[in-house]
Write a protein that binds this DNA or RNA. Structure first.
Lengths: 210, 210
DNA sequence: CTAGAATTTGAGATAAATCTCATTTTTGAG
DNA sequence: CTCAAAAATGAGATTTATCTCAAATTCTAG
């Protein structure tokens, strides 16, 4: 799962056009990882890809388009991985904890993904909504299973999302700390109405089976 | 408490220098309210203040300085108001709820303050820390009173802060909704380890005595 | 009222960035 | 191998800011 060549990996045998495009997308991921989404300049991206500035415009209409494509692509990839890691789980708390844990871990293990995801959630409301849809289903499950006591609205999803972003950003800045990831998972369960001890138990249990 | 002339109100009788400076600071608040902190340009500020672009540099070294001064000033003012509104309260949950409620209400009643506070918390980590210090004392109180079950770290403060920001931003975008403010207060109490029903009761009680 | 000090002014120097396009280079089908 | 189409190139037009500074204006103390 080399994030270094996320896009180029899929272009074996394809034409030059596709390969250059992939190089630009990969360059964009690197630059976003290094300087953040807001400060990713076109020239940074083409330099990183070893191409001329003008080449960019043969492949993307403007700066926004490439950022959006990168963000959607990373979000989809992460979504697939999380889906796979929780597909066998039935209990809603276990699903929420495992998904959250996996999400934060992926963002931190591949800092390039972390920067893209944080940038996307901050600057692209449409993507934030998409990413949080994954959570929505599991929260519904929890209500149905009688273990979550919540008012399931986009507003609640945004509040949970904000906590996850803080967790990732803090760990990217001050160093990875699984204790913080665990605390984040517990806090989400608390938000869902679970007691501190129930939340703690659920997190411990979910981690043991990983 | 006219936010329109937050700074100019304090300059009766002072010299021209002070008055012009205050006009620039007030202009900055307006512009931040309208376009956000990231997009507040020097020229916008001087236009708003009815002054020439060059005048700005007689009073501030650069863009950052005026933004910082505006942010600190608004944060202090809001801090004072909140302190006053909770000074008589003894119970930690009541203090947390009242302070949070007041903070969100101030940000929404004076949209100029809301934009400044959100911009500051997002772009100026130092200010975020200062603002969250107010909360810290009350969380400590709650631990001492045996009603909060938390690991009181800057990390937890940041997670709570992020929820408040989401609440303000959502209401600024989609319209003021006291239900969302109440939900935010309840969610903070849940994070602190209270049960959903205890949280709900504490919020209802704190609001009745306002 | 006056003159020197303080303040304001706004044109323009400077500094990024984005995006365009005529030209050159590369590609790959026949 | 050839050559027309596709792609890449990078200089520079354009845009949009910040910040400087000599000149004009406004204060204020005597």
């Amino acid at each position: 799962m080399k994030a270094q060549h996320h896009f180029q990996a899929d272009t074996k045998g394809l034409g030059k056009r596709a390969r250059t495009r992939a190089a630009l997308l990969d360059g964009a991921i690197s630059v976003i990882a290094e300087k953040g989404m807001a400060d990713a300049k076109i020239t940074d991206i083409t330099d990183q890809a070893g191409l001329a500035n003008g080449t960019f415009y043969n492949h993307f209409a403007d700066r926004e388009q490439i950022l959006r494509e990168v963000a959607y692509s990373v979000a989809e990839e992460v979504g697939r991985e999380i889906d796979a890691s929780i597909s066998a789980l039935k209990a809603a708390p276990a699903r929420v904890v495992t998904a959250t844990w996996r999400f934060i871990s992926l963002a931190l293990e591949e800092p390039e993904w972390g920067s893209v995801l944080i940038g996307a959630v901050e600057h692209m409301p449409a993507i934030r909504k998409d990413v949080l849809q994954y959570l929505r289903g599991d929260l519904e499950k929890g209500i149905a299973q009688g273990v979550f006591d919540i008012n399931l609205t986009p507003f609640l999803l945004d509040q949970i999302g904000a906590m996850v972003v803080v967790s990732i950003r803090t760990q990217m800045e001050f160093g990875v700390d699984p204790g913080k990831t665990a605390e984040t998972c517990e806090n989400i369960l608390r938000l869902c109405g679970q007691t501190p001890s129930a939340a703690r138990r659920a997190v411990a249990k979910a981690l043991k089976s990983t």
